[in-house]
Amino acid sequence: MTRLRESLTVLVFLLPVLVLFAMFRFLPMLGAVGLSLTDYHPGGDWRFTGTENYRSLAQDEIFLSSLRTTLGYVAVYVPLIVVVALGTALLLHAVPWGRGLFRAALFAPYATSLVLSGVLWRWVLEPTGFLEQPSMVLPALAVVGAWKGFGYAMLILFAGIRNAPADCLEAAKVDGASVWQRFRHVLLPALRPALFFVVVVETVGAFQVFDTVYVMTGGGPVRASYTLAYAVYDYGFRYFDIGSAAAIGVALWAIVLLVSLTQRRAFDRNP
């Protein structure tokens, strides 16, 4: 009886999160899947179209190009932010004094508004012409995204470094291991859970990149920064092609899920 009561109490405490998750995550997701199978009009009319939206997307060059653009962004952004976050976390760990001050300073961009950062970076980058060159716009956006987001990843990795076995590092040092060898064979394996978390979170975020694109480039020039999330916005809210927008959203979800599972397997296989 007591156990049942305790379980109920736990359930009640979890209820807010479960209800909010169901209402604002799970149900909209189901709704999006449903919409992707319809031709839905903002006026309220709709008809069931089955997989027509998915089939037309498969032949839609703009969707396919936005998929390539998104993959390109992920390929630049994720390694960049992981390297920057890991580098700053290691530097932070090595700082003998004022660590809190440096940590706060490095974390500051993460706490600023993404839209505001985008506007400021647009002012910075516009005179350089980077936002006007199709070949430079994705790296430029990735740099802005990494600048904005590395603070969070840095804190996760910094915590991982602090939890690394000091005795092993010490023993390796005594045994004559170089700095690189200690990093590669002692610290990096210890950081695996933190790195996995960072890589997955940043990959998911990179696939969903929208704000910086919206503020800085509008998907241009010449669709060079037209990402999947931007296509969802364009198809849905500008062209009112709700079914296609929902289908792109579902495709994005499936891709992110697939990539996350692949990353998990890769991390499991390579200890």
Binding site: E132, P221, V222, R223, R238, Y239
Partner: peptide, 19 residues
């Protein structure tokens, strides 16, 4: 009309960029 603008505009950019 509005969607056509969305499709045409990137190509106009390409011409202006000399691509």
């Amino acid at each position: 009309a509005r969607k056509v603008m969305g499709l045409l505009a990137p190509h106009l950019q390409a011409a202006l960029l000399g691509q």
